[in-house]
Amino acid sequence: MKEIKLIEVKEGILSENDNKAETLRDELKKSKTFLLNLMSSPGSGKTSLILKTIDVLKDEFRIGVIEADIDSMVDAVSVTNHGAKAVQLKTGGFCHLDASMVEEGLQAINYERYDLLIIENVGNLVCPAEFDTGAVKKAMILSVPEGDDKPLKYPLMFSVCDVLVLNKVDYMELSDFDFQAMKNRVYKLNPEIKIIEVSCRTGQGIDEWGEWLRQEIKSFSCITLD
């Protein structure tokens, strides 16, 4: 019987992706392009929030959108009709974007020409949480109809994001969504996360969201390169 040998590896499984993401972040710093990774379940309002964001910030920043879907162009068409530039990445069955797919999107849209680029990730609360895309900040949307228990079911997503946008708050009174319970569950996983309540339908909270993003973009563009 042959002898069994132990090989010590101690290597991050996603280290290749993480390195690529770091490289992208360095490039984005040079061109002062703020990249936001927007994640959520399907139907929670990613495209609606992006359209509202364009309305609020289009006079101050040059905005572009990198759309990712398994196989369709509908979101890119909506964004383009709204007056912002969009590129569509078809992930061809993949449930998330990784850094090398984002790199393709950045090149396709000519990222140096923009102050703000938003990645509309694939609608999914599981895999996108695992992959660093090179974004400066990560945002997620939870919508009221999805329920206040989502932080219990998808803890990783809630623990990696910088900001949580609670959308469809105009449905709150029609539902048994427990806002305080949801907040407690989220802060437990991520004590530093910012929570912003909005309704893309009525426009409630969109100014607060726009202001958060404006300040983040401004402080990012002030960072001096080391």
Partner: peptide, 12 residues
């Protein structure tokens, strides 16, 4: 405590 790591392999 986040992420995935390959610690070691047993091989012949």
């Amino acid at each position: 405590g986040k992420g995935y790591f390959l610690e070691n392999l047993e091989v012949i």
